[in-house]
Amino acid sequence: MATDPELAVRGAVTDGEMHTLFAAAWGGDSDTSWAPILARSLAWITARRDGTLVGFVNVATDGGSHAFLLDTTVHPDEQHRGLGTRLVRAATEQARAAGAEWLHVDYEPHLTGFYAGCGFRPTDAGLRRLAPAPTAAPG
Rank of each mutant, 00 (worst) to 15 (best):
1 M>L: 10
2 A>L: 08
2 A>V: 11
2 A>Q: 07
3 T>Y: 04
3 T>V: 04
5 P>R: 00
11 G>A: 09
12 A>R: 09
12 A>D: 14
15 D>A: 12
17 E>H: 07
18 M>T: 03
18 M>K: 03
20 T>G: 11
20 T>K: 11
21 L>T: 08
22 F>Q: 14
24 A>Y: 09
25 A>N: 13
26 W>F: 15
27 G>C: 05
28 G>A: 12
28 G>W: 10
32 T>A: 12
33 S>F: 01
33 S>K: 07
34 W>M: 12
34 W>K: 01
35 A>D: 14
35 A>R: 10
36 P>G: 11
38 L>N: 01
40 R>T: 06
40 R>H: 07
42 L>K: 01
42 L>F: 04
43 A>C: 05
47 A>T: 02
50 D>C: 08
50 D>F: 05
51 G>Q: 04
51 G>E: 03
53 L>D: 00
53 L>I: 14
54 V>G: 02
55 G>K: 00
56 F>P: 01
57 V>A: 08
58 N>Q: 13
60 A>G: 14
61 T>A: 04
64 G>I: 05
65 S>F: 15
66 H>A: 13
70 L>G: 00
72 T>R: 00
72 T>G: 06
72 T>I: 12
72 T>D: 02
74 V>L: 11
75 H>K: 04
76 P>K: 12
76 P>T: 13
76 P>V: 13
78 E>M: 15
79 Q>A: 08
80 H>S: 15
80 H>L: 12
83 L>C: 08
83 L>A: 09
85 T>K: 07
86 R>I: 06
87 L>Q: 00
89 R>K: 09
89 R>Q: 07
90 A>N: 01
90 A>M: 02
91 A>G: 07
92 T>Y: 00
96 R>K: 15
96 R>F: 00
96 R>L: 06
98 A>G: 08
99 G>K: 06
101 E>Y: 11
104 H>K: 05
106 D>R: 14
106 D>F: 14
107 Y>V: 05
108 E>D: 13
108 E>H: 12
111 L>I: 03
115 Y>H: 13
116 A>D: 15
116 A>Y: 14
117 G>I: 04
118 C>V: 05
123 T>K: 11
123 T>I: 14
124 D>N: 11
124 D>W: 06
124 D>E: 15
125 A>M: 07
125 A>P: 01
126 G>H: 12
126 G>F: 13
130 L>C: 10
130 L>I: 10
131 A>Q: 09
131 A>L: 08
131 A>Y: 02
132 P>A: 10
133 A>K: 08
134 P>I: 02
135 T>H: 09
139 G>P: 07
